[in-house]
């Protein structure tokens, strides 16, 4: 048995009085591709944001590569993690956002090479070289000196992926990365994700409404419903053969 790269242990998350996640337990193995599906408001984004440290769990533990994400050891006691600890653990995780969140004041190339240079202290030449290769891989080798505002939505999202990938995360998070795109641009972005998935070594968590894509890419699919994992299994078990009624009525909307 390989050690999981990410573990959620009884994670609860409330916003004010509203409990959004009600005890999530989850193991993700290195290189495993996990798709999260579920109705709007079920807590999919929240799971991803907890892992990216954009939100803090109300209770429970998240373990990343053997290290507790939100807690650290201080004189033999577990206390709330400080920013230094968070930075150490967070380095293994990358994220692609629904709305890209590219830096508008930087060129495409600068968007990609800033973090390797300043966060990973890579020398400028290597970082530039690797960024260019990554941008070529996502099909944007001819846009290096353009600004984000000069690109289409699909191109922006591919830059965002390159920007996350040059940091070589062990886990990559995708939160509905195609749902802000015009329909005709969705394909090019999914294609890039498929390519990344095929290369293998990185674990991926994908929140998606594209069921065919999930069937194609995911090793495991989780159906999240009102803050609990209501169903999980291989993509085909969950999407094609589940008896869960709420899951079936959820899926029906995508088959229509």
């Amino acid at each position: 048995m390989t050690e999981p790269i990410v573990t959620f242990q009884n994670i609860h998350k409330s916003f004010g009085d509203v409990e959004v996640l009600k005890g999530i337990n989850l193991d993700i193995k290195p290189a495993e591709k996990v798709a999260i599906i579920g109705p709007s408001g079920s807590g999919k984004t929240t799971i991803i944001r907890l892992l990216m440290t954009l939100e803090k769990p109300t209770s429970g533990d998240i373990i990343v590569d053997g290290k507790n994400l939100w807690k650290m050891d201080k004189n033999g006691k577990l206390v709330d993690a400080n920013e230094k600890h968070l930075r150490q653990v967070r380095g293994d995780i990358g994220m692609v956002f629904q709305h890209f969140n590219l830096f508008p004041h930087m060129t495409i190339l600068e968007n990609c090479m800033t973090a390797p240079i300043h966060v990973k202290s890579e020398d400028k030449k290597t970082a530039k070289q690797r960024s260019i290769e990554m941008l070529e891989k996502v099909g944007l080798g001819d846009k290096l000196d353009n600004y984000p505002s000069q690109l289409s939505g699909g191109q922006k999202q591919r830059v965002a992926m390159a920007r996350a990938l040059v940091m070589r995360p062990k886990v990559m998070l995708f939160d509905e990365v195609t749902s802000a795109l015009d329909p005709e641009l969705v394909g090019e972005v999914l294609e890039v994700i498929r390519d990344i998935a095929k290369e293998g070594e990185m674990a991926m968590i994908l929140v998606t409404h594209e069921m065919d894509f999930a069937l194609d890419v995911a090793d495991k699919v989780l159906f999240l419903d009102e803050g609990v994992i209501a169903e999980q299994g291989t993509a085909s078990e969950v999407i094609e053969h589940s008896k869960n009624e709420r899951l079936q009525s959820f899926l029906k909307r995508f088959r229509a």
């Binding site: 930075r87 890209f100 969140n101 590219l102 996350a164």
Partner: peptide, 16 residues
């Protein structure tokens, strides 16, 4: 808001 979040996702330090 997305700019702050992207900074965190790329693991920038506070000063960066």
């Amino acid at each position: 808001k997305g700019q702050w979040e992207a900074s965190r996702a790329l693991n920038f330090s506070t000063s960066q």
